[in-house]
């Protein structure tokens, strides 16, 4: 290599050049992170369709749930979704700082920059933790008491779990809409010129799903 001819030690040709290349590992992991993310986004939209059907009628929701039950999609799909979520978390967590030092750095950075997309990443990291814990509890609770019915869901909300969903719902919706936007910009499906538009779509998406979610929660709260 040419730079070896560089003389003296005056130029700090850094050791990072000699790091063993990780082969294709990082590429596969990045694909997986994106695909699991996209899959979970799709699932969340379907999930929202299922539960929000209660707004029209609890019977529709029960029918859809039964369909999943009979076809064993719930019994198999449930754990698969849980597993996907864990994988997605582990993959994405590679980039999230877990040491206080890193957290301090990124927090100071976000505060310094006054930059929306940087803040959105902090939001994503924080909501990720909430979703991981609360989402897992939710899945466990639901799957350990199949079949899913509107009545059971309503009972949960009315028995004091309301606050639980009031936290989980916005966390998930934030994480999903920001994540959806970020997949778009990271992989270049959204171009520089379209970013403001994409941002708007992201916001509208968040608002719409929040609205549906809140209406659904309200419906459960008063379903009797």
């Amino acid at each position: 290599m040419h730079w070896l001819r560089n003389f003296g030690g005056s130029m700090s040709v850094d050791a990072t050049m000699h790091v063993v290349r990780p082969g294709r590992r990082d590429a596969y992991l990045d694909w997986l992170q994106m695909l699991t993310g996209a899959g979970l986004v799709l699932f969340m939209w379907c999930h929202m369709l299922l539960v929000s059907s209660v707004v029209i009628s609890p019977r529709i929701m029960d029918a859809i749930a039964e369909f999943f039950e009979v076809t064993y999609m719930a019994q198999v799909g449930g754990p698969v979704i849980f597993f996907t979520m864990i994988i997605h978390f582990i993959l994405a967590a590679r980039k999230i700082p877990f040491r206080a030092e890193g957290q301090k750095t990124i927090w100071a950075h976000a505060k310094m920059m006054h930059h929306a997309d940087t803040w959105l990443w902090v939001v994503q990291a924080v909501t990720a933790m909430i979703v991981l814990i609360m989402g897992s509890i939710h899945i466990f609770v639901v799957l350990s008491d199949l079949p899913i019915t509107a009545a059971k869901s309503a009972a949960r909300v009315q028995e004091g779990w309301g606050w639980f969903y009031l936290i989980l719902l916005p966390s998930i919706e934030l994480h999903v809409s920001v994540g959806f936007y970020r997949i778009g910009v990271k992989w270049g499906f959204i171009k520089t010129a379209d970013r403001p538009k994409a941002k708007k779509v992201e916001n509208i998406m968040f608002a719409v799903f929040m609205a549906i979610g809140l209406v659904t929660l309200l419906r459960f709260a008063f379903l009797g």
Partner: peptide, 27 residues
Amino acid sequence: GNDYGIFGCMGLLACEDVCPKKLPLQN
């Protein structure tokens, strides 16, 4: 093709938003 390079990018895009030459970095 690794986390030091393109797969390390987390897509915060401040790079593009602060670039004084307005380079299309995100693209």
